[in-house]
Amino acid sequence: MEQAAIQFDRVGKVYSGNPEPALSSVSFEVRSGEFFCIVGPSGCGKSTVLNIIAGLDRATSGTVVAPKNVAMVFQTGALFPWLTVYENVAIGLKVIKTSEKKVAEECLKYIAMAGLADLAGKYPHELSGGQRQRVGLARALAVNPQVLLLDEPFSALDTATTEELHKDLYKIWQQTKKTVVMVSHSIEEAVSLADRIMLMKAGRIEQIFNIALSYPRREQEAAFIRHVQEIRSMFFK
């Protein structure tokens, strides 16, 4: 059996001033090297799970086992507007005082991997939405995280850019063999990328689905449509 990269055991989360728990007895595992996706309606607790894994939030009850070395790609990109693409990607490495040579090597490698080789000297305001998300991805990969967290990274992008980024993200995942946890509001996006999909509702796990489809996945395929319909029926139940 593959080693678990993340373990949640009966995890609960209550925010002060809100009587409704954000998470109630949530238990699941993410296997090492797996592409794990969390879907669910707004306010179901999917971002809370991601924030707890990232260490941005603490569980009120239960046990969480997650590596400290994680990195996140944010919905808004969360880039530093005063830094160039290269400097944004380098910031995580510079803070941990890696040598200049190593910083340059790692950054250029991931900048190229994210398809940004010609844009290293540009500032975020000079980039398109898709390019900014690529910078966020390169910045996250540059610190060589054990787990890569993606918080609805493509939700603000147009369909063509999203599809292009799906392909590149899949390629990068194949190359780096990272454990990936992605939160998405799109069931189609989850089915096109994930090994397993966790559907959440009102702070609880509704069901975890195995997606045993080979890559590249096509939305027109019968098996793909079946998976989407199965999750959707539970989503709206």
């Binding site: 260490g55 944010f74 969360a78 610190v143």
Partner: peptide, 11 residues
């Protein structure tokens, strides 16, 4: 998100 990014990258 920017504050969270800073926290995640240990800034």
């Amino acid at each position: 998100d920017v504050k969270s990014a800073a926290q995640i990258f240990h800034i």
